[in-house]
């Protein structure tokens, strides 16, 4: 194509004044792509957790707006939520977070027996949490608190139920990692599978005290 005829006004001016080194910095690249600071799996999971935070922020925002615009909360005639037993349950879930952290330390130290042991403790504590939650829901439904019994019930089951679903999903994940750990998958020091599982588990654990405080105590 006709390149020689295309010298514009600016181009001639610039040619006088500026060297060909551009604003972007001319220069040789490093010999190879540097190792990423955060690996793909960790980065991907961090973003997934970010999206989850926005999902729950939407739900919590809706809850707060509905809660603050109601004159009486909880509404008259609705059953009280089980504060003490759920408080105990909160401790169970927090303990599972500690267990998961110990599992991760064991994985980093390449201690396979302790890794699978602490994963099992995590999973059992998570299962205990879900069982107590489920039992309490059955009792609350018996007392007449359902999705349809008004905003109090709707917001309760939406927030607490969706958190429960997330715990269930995370529990399956912990179970899979536990099985893989028993088979020695992480013996060679490639522990990113344990780490991503830990990150997600700690997310569902850390989310719970916020929801407990807002829905049960506030």
């Amino acid at each position: 194509m006709a390149r020689e005829a295309t010298a514009g006004i600016l181009r001639e001016d610039v040619a006088e004044a500026v060297s060909p080194v551009s604003a972007f910095g001319e220069g040789p690249p490093p010999p190879s792509r540097p190792e990423p600071v955060i690996s793909n799996a960790r980065l991907g999971l961090m973003m997934f957790i970010g999206a989850e935070v926005m999902f729950f922020a939407g739900l919590i925002g809706a809850f707060l707006v509905l809660r603050l615009s109601s004159e009486v909360w909880p509404p008259v005639g609705q059953p009280r939520l089980p504060v003490w037993i759920t408080g105990f349950n909160t401790l169970v879930l927090l303990a599972s977070g500690v267990a998961m952290h110990r599992a991760w330390l064991a994985a980093a130290a390449r201690e396979q027996v302790r890794l699978s042991g602490w994963l099992l403790v995590t999973a059992v504590l998570g299962a205990v949490f879900l069982t107590i939650q489920g039992y309490e829901w059955v009792r609350l439904i018996g007392f007449g608190l359902t999705m349809r019994s008004g905003l109090y019930g709707s917001t309760f089951y939406a927030l607490i139920g969706l958190h429960g679903l997330h715990v269930l999903g995370a529990l399956v994940w912990v179970g899979v990692v536990w099985r893989l750990a028993r088979r020695g998958r992480y013996a060679a020091g490639r522990t990113v599978g344990v780490e991503t599982c830990k990150m997600y588990w700690l997310f569902v654990v850390a989310l719970w005290p916020v929801l407990y405080g807002l829905v049960y105590l506030y």
Binding site: F55, F56, G58, L59, A62, S154, A158
Partner: peptide, 25 residues
């Protein structure tokens, strides 16, 4: 997309509950 769409997802979930499970969000 990552941060905005989950808020719609939450709202759509509540709308679906309203329509199908007769909640009152």
């Amino acid at each position: 997309l990552l941060l905005a769409l989950p808020v719609l997802t939450a709202a759509l979930g509540m709308l679906f509950f309203d329509r199908v499970f007769a909640t009152n969000f």
